[in-house]
Amino acid sequence: MKNPILRTALTLLLICGVCAGLVAAVYHVTLPVTTAREAEAEKALVLSVYPEAASLQAKELEAKGNVEKLTAYLDGEGKLCGFVGIVCGAGFGGDIRLVIAVTPEGKILGAGVQEHSETPGVGSRAVGGDFIASLTGASLPVGENGVDSVSGATISSRAVMAAADELLSLIREEGKA
């Protein structure tokens, strides 16, 4: 090839094309494994906060705002037994993603943390066992119903409480509708 600029451009294009092909191939191979694993992890977490979910029928409801997923659980006769919501709160280090199980009356049955990036030892106390466990039994607004923020981890615990409140108010709306 005579034209050096053309040669340069074509070489770079070729390298980019081959590299893109490599990434696409790896993506194609790993995608099913990744999605299966993520779905499984989410299912396990839902069962850990709401063990009854195993024997009930799930029905997806419309999610809004920071609530990413809202599922209603019905028994064999179609009676509503509870909700499980996945909701995000804006923590100190990024999103805190919670899985919360709620009774039809709007009382929290249990909660678990799916994902967070709070500072280890500081903000992480607001996503650890004791504080998350204190959400159990609380109702809207959780701050006035038995949940106290963790001192030294105010931003993280408020993010968790705000997320819980948002989910509870969405469920309350859902109940009216």
């Binding site: 770079l12 390298i15 980019c16 590299c19 893109a20 490599l22 990434v23 790896v26 993506y27 790993t30 995608l31 494994v33 990744t34 694993r37 993520e38 992890a41």
Partner: peptide, 19 residues
């Protein structure tokens, strides 16, 4: 470009098998 292709591939593999 070559390095980023390998890094992306490594990341996809880690995400799939070592979450």
């Amino acid at each position: 470009v070559i390095i980023s292709a390998f890094v992306t591939a490594v990341q996809l593999v880690i995400r799939a098998y070592l979450p």
